[in-house]
Amino acid sequence: MKIAAVGDNCIDLYENFKKAFPGGNPVNVAVYFKRLGGRASYTGAVGDDEYGKFMIDAIRNKGVDVSNVKILPGKTAITHVKLVDGDRILGDYEEGVMKEFKISDEDIEFFKNHDLVVSGLWGRVEDDLHKIKKKGIPIAFDFADKLDSPIVEKAIYDVDYAFFSYDGGDDDFIREYMKKIHRKGPKVVIVTLGEKGSICYDGTSFLYEGVIPCEVVDAMGAGDSYIAGFLFGILSGKKIEECMKIGAQNASTTIKYFGAW
């Protein structure tokens, strides 16, 4: 099993501790998928600065294929983070060279050697998902908590596994939202609910999964871990219920330490 993680990367700069950790939604998913025993590559853009080298070396050291990463003149993306009682508070995001990233035809040829492509809201790939879809490659996409983002409407018709996060507490609202999203094309719609676990809709029924109780050190990467676990289950031929459990277990591993990985 091999996934192509595509899109944004960023350095998570923890201001409390003056420490930098590599991260970014697709990058994290690739690393967590590899941690579970799968194979993964990452496609995106880093700057030709020290953080760019740090990012590539860190991803490579986790066993992820970085042969398709672009090194562009400029700065690698940075997210400023504060940690307060185990909860991460995201500050300014400096996009750097990622603002220049775009999927090429060569990239799509590269993706054909993978079982699935996964990206997310800040990956700058929504305009080209249809090209990947035409090649018959399944697509997973993380829309985060941006339920009303115009990117949802732009991307959703080409997505097979649609991930969202929601902490609004209105169960009726989120179930109706998932039904509406499912009618637009995805095979499965999955929503992580923070401490309440996760909910999944396959067009027929809703499935629920709780969290794995553990001491939370840093919640960074929890959602990405869940996505990696869920997709690992899907590509392993597991039932949806089992995929949700693998996602929850993978997330519980990540939140026990500082940084995404």
Rank of each mutant, 00 (worst) to 15 (best):
N16M: 13
N16F: 11
N16S: 14
F17P: 09
K18P: 09
K18W: 13
K18I: 11
A20T: 09
A20Y: 07
G23S: 05
G23C: 06
G24M: 09
G24A: 10
L36C: 06
L36E: 05
G37L: 09
G38Y: 08
R39I: 08
R39C: 10
A40F: 14
A40R: 14
T43P: 09
T43R: 11
G44D: 06
Y51L: 14
Y51D: 11
Y51I: 08
K53Q: 12
M55C: 10
I56P: 09
D57A: 08
A58C: 08
A58L: 05
I59T: 04
G63D: 04
G63L: 05
V66L: 07
V66W: 04
N68R: 15
L72E: 07
G74T: 06
G74F: 03
V81P: 11
V81K: 14
V81C: 14
K82C: 05
L83S: 12
L83H: 11
V84R: 15
V84P: 07
G86E: 13
G91V: 14
D92I: 06
D92V: 10
Y93L: 13
E94M: 11
E94N: 13
G96I: 00
E100W: 03
F101E: 01
K102L: 03
K102C: 03
I103G: 01
I103W: 01
S104Q: 07
D105N: 04
D105Q: 05
I108E: 01
K112Q: 02
K112G: 02
K112A: 04
N113S: 07
D115M: 04
D115C: 02
L116S: 03
L116T: 03
S119Y: 01
L121P: 00
W122I: 07
D127P: 00
D127H: 01
D128Y: 01
D128S: 04
K131S: 01
I132T: 00
K133H: 02
K133P: 00
K134L: 06
I139F: 02
F141M: 13
D142N: 14
F143H: 11
K146I: 10
V152Y: 10
E153Y: 09
E153K: 15
